[in-house]
């Protein structure tokens, strides 16, 4: 194993760097004394910078609205009771409540809908900018005609729980929220999807189903849309969501059928 000696390894990497094929973990980084080689140090800082920028990036509801033009559906803008990002980060309770203007807006569009889709910034506006509209149109492609769909809501400074207020205000039986997840160091653009049957204030996470890590390098929007459409269909059939609703969508017969 002469290839495992320090001399033959480029740029200070450890010889077991080859094992990185088995994991995305930052192994085999090499070492300068007890510290990290400069290149590895800067790689980490770049990943952290991207993740932080995703958290603090302003949600551009206007550009998301433009992306949705082709769907030819009514679109509403709403805002949580958290006025700005610093408040949003420290007061998750406010991120779950609508501001007064938004409550009024939704009231004007109240109806009797099977489902309300919500595109929300959450903790990564970047994820929503990059993947939410694509994922939404893929879900709609899967659904067929039997669903009455509420106006699509674009939610700013939003936590997952805001979907309960939105769904209740619109009169939707089910909400499907696409929301930016807390960025990991190597996944700044990860989108999450939460399904909640019977949305109303006070729902807990146990009442929801979650499809996580939606991004090209994680769960692709195509696969995610199939999973979500499957869960929506089952949720409507059973009249519930949450722990009692199991995701059997990896069984292809269930999805295609």
């Amino acid at each position: 194993m002469s290839n495992l000696t320090n001399k033959k390894i480029p740029s200070g990497l450890d010889p077991w760097n080859a094992l990185r094929v088995h994991t995305d973990a930052r192994i085999g980084l090499g070492r300068v004394g007890d510290g990290l080689p400069t290149e590895r140090l800067l790689e980490f800082q770049m990943a952290h910078a991207r993740a932080r920028d995703s958290v603090h990036m302003a949600f551009e509801a206007g550009s998301v609205r433009a992306q949705l033009d082709g769907l030819d559906r009514p679109i509403l803008d709403v805002h949580s009771a958290a006025p700005d990002r610093p408040t949003y980060l420290q007061r998750p309770d406010l991120g779950r409540l609508l501001d007064d203007e938004s409550t009024a807006t939704l009231g004007k569009h109240a109806g009797d809908y099977d489902v309300a889709f919500i595109l929300a910034d959450g903790l990564s506006a970047r994820a929503t900018h990059d993947h939410a509209t694509n994922t939404l149109s893929l879900i709609l492609d899967q659904l067929g005609e039997s669903w009455s769909v509420a106006p699509v809501t674009l939610a700013t400074q939003s936590r997952v729980g805001l979907g309960d207020e939105i769904g209740a205000a619109l009169g939707a039986k089910l909400t499907v929220m696409l929301i930016g997840e807390r960025p990991g160091l190597s996944s700044a653009d990860s989108l999450g999807c939460y399904l909640t049957w019977g949305p109303k204030r006070g729902r807990s996470n146990a009442d929801r189903n979650c499809v996580s890590n939606i991004r090209p390098a994680g769960l692709s929007p195509e696969k995610a849309a199939k999973k979500i459409a499957y869960l929506m269909t089952e949720s409507r059939k059973m009249g519930l969501s949450g722990v009692a609703l199991k995701d059997n969508s990896s069984n292809p017969d269930l999805i295609e059928g």
């Binding site: 994991t23 995305d24 973990a25 930052r26 192994i27 980084l29 980490f44 990991g184 160091l185 996944s187």
Partner: peptide, 11 residues
């Protein structure tokens, strides 16, 4: 490894 927990998504 590298202070980056790729499962729990924190540093």
């Amino acid at each position: 490894p590298g202070a980056d927990d790729i499962m729990l998504n924190y540093q």
